[in-house]
């Protein structure tokens, strides 16, 4: 297990050195999107329409934050369950996105797309919304405001703590970890 400090946007050089289990502190700009926003974003890519941010090397955070208290950039902001984005993520990776942050397992299609396009699926600690929200220094809605918590937000993060779950070699931390501790009768 290695530890890295990485700055977004991520290059293929950044992502192809990471291995499942590595700890990464992310700094820079990341973008939020959940189910409803992904459905719209993927349609834009497929139709070749204008995209609300630069997708090359982007990191997408699967999150729907709580409303900020007065004076705060954002409320609590931990990851949501990622499998709901499985049908969209391969397209996002194909068009140049290089990182996803969420929680829970991904489909084989997503793992294959990570290998092919140099993408990484990072896990953040679900339910640690207060702690993770504090690593977000600014937040701005840049698309689909009507979706409320599901709107696309541009976030500035500093040392945002994530763990590599799926790497570009087919490694899967959930599988490795579970096999190590499973007790078979």
């Amino acid at each position: 297990m290695a530890e890295y400090n990485l700055t977004t946007p991520l290059s293929e050089e950044d992502t192809r050195k990471l291995k499942a289990g590595d700890i990464v502190l992310l700094t820079g700009t990341i973008y939020t999107a959940r189910d409803a926003a992904h459905a719209r974003l993927v349609k834009l890519l497929e139709n070749g329409e204008e995209f609300p941010f630069s997708i090359e090397g982007s990191v997408i955070y699967f999150v729907g934050p709580t409303p900020p208290k007065p004076g705060d950039p954002i409320g609590s902001a931990g990851p949501t369950t990622s499998y709901r984005m499985d049908s969209y993520s391969p397209t996002m990776l194909k068009f140049g996105s290089r990182g996803m942050i969420g929680k829970g397992g991904r489909s084989q299609e997503v793992k294959d797309a990570c290998k092919e396009h140099g993408g990484i699926y990072f896990g953040a600690t679900g339910g640690a919304g207060a702690l993770l929200g504090k690593q977000i220094k600014s937040a701005k809605v840049i698309a689909y405001e009507e979706l409320g918590p599901e709107a696309v937000r541009e976030l500035t993060v500093e040392n945002f703590p994530v763990t590599v779950v799926n790497d570009t070699f087919g490694g899967d931390l959930y599988q490795i970890g579970r096999e190590q501790f499973e007790v078979k009768d």
Partner: peptide, 17 residues
């Protein structure tokens, strides 16, 4: 640590309230 921050700073423990 998250539980401590949430309690001390009155922030929701999780964004899924």
């Amino acid at each position: 640590e998250n539980a401590k921050i949430a309690r001390d700073e009155k922030r929701p423990l999780c964004q899924d309230t």
